[in-house]
């Protein structure tokens, strides 16, 4: 019975974790899945979001989720700026495959080093009343430090999905990936659509970062572990499909949680990356692709 108990708790924790992973991957599902921009610095921006939550929480006692929402517009503007540079330096000149990749790699590295220089390599965390408490349903525990990120992430995913499928700009973003001609017929400028979409993806990093630091303490190099997770989820979910991405995130969360429970936490990082390698090798169109 102990194993059934353990299994149920591992699966539930995995689902909650997976929901949070959706918040990590959703920005990349737009930026990489739909715009084809390999922004490997995305997880680094999520770490910046986490530190923003940490700073405002420890100084002024702001709720981390609230900080995430408040920081999102600023991330949006920064994202628009970064896309401008990316477009002018690489996309317009056709250099994105080599120089563009190296560019984001450099940006990622700079963010990490600056955070280490300013805050050191100590783990940082946030305080909120709900973080320590747990909701017990029978023998299954629902810790709030996982439940709050899960609920927020589901809301974020639903919101982005609705935005992409219901609004004019959202449809234009989807068109930019599939059909440039249709986009021009709609009267939209591809570059400004992509800029808007990149900025939107970046804005989600602010929220994902605040959720990350609710789940557990954060230090600057944690972001690297999320590169594999985020890309694995986007590729597995079929490049840019939001529902596919969400299901892939849940799958990864559950598998990781099971591995951690039954094998040990030191193996968890390899799960996402192994899954990613296998997907790339055998099913590059994703789980739900044709």
């Amino acid at each position: 019975m102990l194993t059934a108990d353990l299994l149920a708790n591992a699966v539930v924790a995995g689902i909650l974790l997976g929901g949070f992973y959706a918040a990590v991957a959703i920005g990349l599902a737009i930026i990489f899945g739909q715009l084809d921009i390999v922004n490997i610095a995305h997880p680094a921006f999520i770490i910046v979001g986490a530190y923003t939550a940490y700073i405002l929480n420890s100084r002024f006692g702001f709720d981390p989720v609230l900080v995430g929402v408040l920081a999102a517009p600023i991330f949006f503007i920064v994202g628009a700026g970064i896309y401008r540079i990316y477009y002018a330096a690489f996309e317009r000149t056709g250099q994105e495959s080599l120089s563009g990749l190296a560019f984001f790699f450099g940006v990622m590295f700079i963010i990490e080093v600056v955070l280490i220089l300013v805050y050191g390599v100590d783990y940082r965390l946030v305080a909120a009343r709900y973080i320590g408490s747990t909701w017990s349903l029978g023998f299954v525990d629902l810790p709030f430090r996982l439940l709050v990120p899960f609920v927020t992430a589901v809301a974020l995913t639903a919101g982005v999905y609705a935005y992409l499928s219901r609004t004019f700009m959202g449809r234009a973003i989807q068109a930019v990936a599939q059909d440039r001609l249709a986009l021009q017929l709609m009267g939209a400028n591809p570059v400004s659509v992509k800029q808007w979409a990149f900025a939107l993806g970046m804005a989600t990093a602010a929220i994902a970062g605040s959720l990350l630091i609710i789940i557990g303490p954060v230090e600057p190099s944690v972001g690297r572990l999320y590169i594999g997770r985020a890309f694995a989820i986007v590729v597995l979910g079929g490049m840019g499909s939001i529902p596919g991405m969400f299901i892939a995130a849940l799958i990864l969360g559950v598998v990781e949680s099971l591995v951690t429970t039954f094998w040990g936490p030191s193996w968890a990082p390899a799960v996402a990356f192994g899954l990613l390698l296998l997907t790339l090798a055998f099913r590059p169109s994703g789980l739900f692709g044709r």
Binding site: V38, S97, S266, A281
Partner: peptide
């Protein structure tokens, strides 16, 4: 495994490979 795909997949796969080997050697 990856070079028959688009170039970016190779780049991402190398990132993935680094963590997989790090985990293997850590264990």
């Amino acid at each position: 495994l990856t070079l028959r795909l688009k170039g970016v997949y190779f780049a991402i796969a190398t990132l993935a490979m680094a963590i997989v080997f790090e985990t293997l050697i850590t264990n």
